[in-house]
Computed example of a mutant assay.
Amino acid sequence: MTETHQNMSKHYVQIMAVKDRVNCEHLPDENPVGDLNQVENQQLMPSAEDNNDLREDMIHILSLTLIQHLQAFSIFKDVYPDYFQHPYSDIMDKKSVVMILFLLI
């Protein structure tokens, strides 16, 4: 590369807006409720319920992996759900509404 023949650096930035699929209007916009400096370390540790939930999630993931990759378990693919069920599952199944605002060069 010479001084007279330099590479041109062009950066394209696209600004998009995505409509929220899950309505969060009911959530508060106030400042944090507590001070992290005052939180005890024990409050940040997972509870027995957290450990149980994690164990169930791991069982679900392992089951899906076995069904997808081992032929002997493929008979369960119509019986076992291939997704995690949560309160917003039906909303999250829908396609997002994306709008391109403009293109900056």
Rank of each mutant, 00 (worst) to 15 (best):
Met1Pro: 02
Met1Tyr: 05
Thr2Ala: 09
Thr4His: 04
His5Glu: 07
His5Phe: 03
His5Trp: 00
Met8Ile: 08
Lys10Gly: 04
Met16Asp: 02
Asp20Thr: 00
Arg21Leu: 12
Asn23Val: 11
Asn23Arg: 10
Asn23Ser: 14
Asn23Trp: 08
Cys24Asp: 14
Asp29Arg: 07
Asp29Phe: 02
Glu30Asn: 15
Pro32Ser: 07
Val33Phe: 15
Val33Leu: 15
Gly34Val: 07
Gly34His: 09
Glu40Ser: 15
Gln42Gly: 00
Met45Lys: 11
Pro46Val: 01
Ala48Ile: 06
Glu49Lys: 09
Asp50Cys: 08
Asn51His: 12
Asn51Val: 03
Asn52Ile: 12
Arg55Ile: 04
Arg55Lys: 11
Glu56Arg: 11
Glu56Gln: 13
Asp57Lys: 14
Asp57Val: 06
Ile61Cys: 01
Leu62Thr: 08
Ser63Gln: 04
Ser63Glu: 03
His69Tyr: 14
Ala72His: 05
Phe73Thr: 04
Phe76Ile: 04
Lys77His: 13
Asp78Val: 04
Tyr80Cys: 04
Pro81Thr: 07
Asp82Lys: 10
Tyr83Gln: 06
Gln85Pro: 00
Pro87Ala: 01
Ile91Arg: 01
Asp93Gln: 11
Lys94Arg: 12
Val97Thr: 12
Val98Asn: 03
Met99Ile: 14
Ile100Arg: 05
Leu103Gly: 02
Leu103Ile: 14
Leu104Pro: 01
Ile105Asn: 14
